[in-house]
């Protein structure tokens, strides 16, 4: 057992760093506080996020800024139907050494970075999309007989356009489940648009500075993992998860009607980890039910698969999650 004062100091340090991070990001990114926190949550949890929004909302800018302020390596992959797995993973090429020998050398693809932006991920074929799976899940890439570990922290931030479905390959359920959060990037408000225009159409260029190191990020990730979760909070998260399944315990009637498959256990893991991050964001030492509630929508919305009836009715998973959160009491006998 370590000293609680140390822990308190760690949390304070965490808050400071997050504060600095937010401030620096805020210099470039206008608004989108929830998306920024969501992405940060994913990164601090050591996971990946799926960003959904129309083009031009600053998704790439956000990811690039994050990488800059954290001093992390950043790559961007524009997914297209003809994109091959080797294009993102890398390939073995025959190379001539200085002494004239020919050797096979592995040329790393764009997945070899700390932050990978997989732009319009649903435009690539499932074969290419699945190439990303191993990297996302295992944080390593196998080419031939050689496995290449990806450098930590590793975070894939994929984007997809919700409007243009023509010629796209929707992500399979298994791949969707690997995303920690699915974040919806909203259209900026009028005030935010004013600020964006002001910043992007003037002479002044905004530069961000690095406020975190890679080590800071890793230690912060470690702190997140250490945040305790009381049983009642865990219990609540489990009950929420159960309620996402049609005819599951505590499932509201809307879920029974409109949901085909509920969230996998990865959903509850995501909720708890996100709850821990949120507790730290708020300077608390333990996760709370409110944190679980806050994490429920981004963690579960892409894990609940709607039934035909649900899709026909245009039911949004967020609505169903709202029903679930409203129906489950904080404590249970």
């Amino acid at each position: 057992m370590t000293d609680p004062d140390t822990a308190r100091r760690d949390v304070e340090e965490f808050l400071k760093k997050i504060g600095a991070l937010r401030e620096e990001i805020g210099r470039v990114i206008v608004g989108n506080r929830e998306v920024i926190d969501g992405v940060l949550t994913c990164m601090l949890s050591g996971s990946h996020a799926l960003l959904e929004g129309v083009p031009g909302l600053g998704k790439t800018m956000l990811v690039r800024t994050l990488a800059q302020v954290m001093g992390l390596e950043f790559t961007r992959i524009q997914f297209t139907p003809d994109l091959m797995p080797a294009d993102i993973i890398g390939t073995v090429v025959l190379d001539e050494t200085a002494d004239g020998k020919h050797v096979f050398e592995f040329r790393k693809g764009p997945v070899f970075a700390n932050i990978v932006l997989a732009d319009e991920v649903n435009r690539a074929t499932p074969k290419t999309q699945s190439a990303l799976l191993e990297a996302m899940q295992e944080h390593r890439v196998t080419v031939g007989r050689t496995t290449h570990a990806l450098e930590e922290p590793y975070c894939v931030l994929a984007t997809q356009n919700p409007l243009e479905m023509e010629g796209t390959y929707p992500l399979p359920e298994a791949q969707l489940d690997r995303f920690f959060f699915k974040l919806e990037v909203p259209f900026p408000s009028r005030e935010e648009l004013h600020t964006i225009l002001e910043r992007t159409t003037s002479e002044a260029e905004t530069h961000v500075t690095q406020v975190l190191t890679r080590e800071d990020m890793l230690s912060m990730q470690a702190l997140v993992r250490r945040v305790p979760v009381a049983r009642h909070v865990r219990d609540y998260a489990i009950r929420v998860l159960q309620a996402t399944h049609p005819h599951g315990e505590g499932a509201p009637s809307a879920v029974n009607r409109f949901v085909r498959t509920g969230a996998s256990p990865r959903g509850v893991q995501a909720m708890l980890l996100a709850a821990k991050v949120r507790a730290l964001f708020e300077g608390r030492f333990a996760a709370a039910i409110d944190d679980v509630k806050a994490a429920a929508r981004p963690a579960l919305r892409h894990r609940m698969l709607l039934s035909f009836e649900g899709e026909a009715e245009g039911v949004r998973p967020d609505t169903l999650i709202g029903d679930i959160l409203g129906s489950i009491p904080s404590s249970k006998d």
């Binding site: 057992m1 609680p4 949390v11 305790p228 009381a230 030492f285 333990a286 709370a288 409110d290």
Partner: peptide, 29 residues
């Protein structure tokens, strides 16, 4: 209080050996 009392009570119920520094901090909080 975002479950700070409940969490403290719940963590207090754990054996001391299982308590982390953060747990102790949460209890004190």
């Amino acid at each position: 209080l975002s479950d700070r009392i409940t969490s403290a009570l719940a963590l207090l119920g754990r054996p001391e050996s299982e308590r982390t520094a953060l747990s102790e901090a949460a209890i004190e909080d």
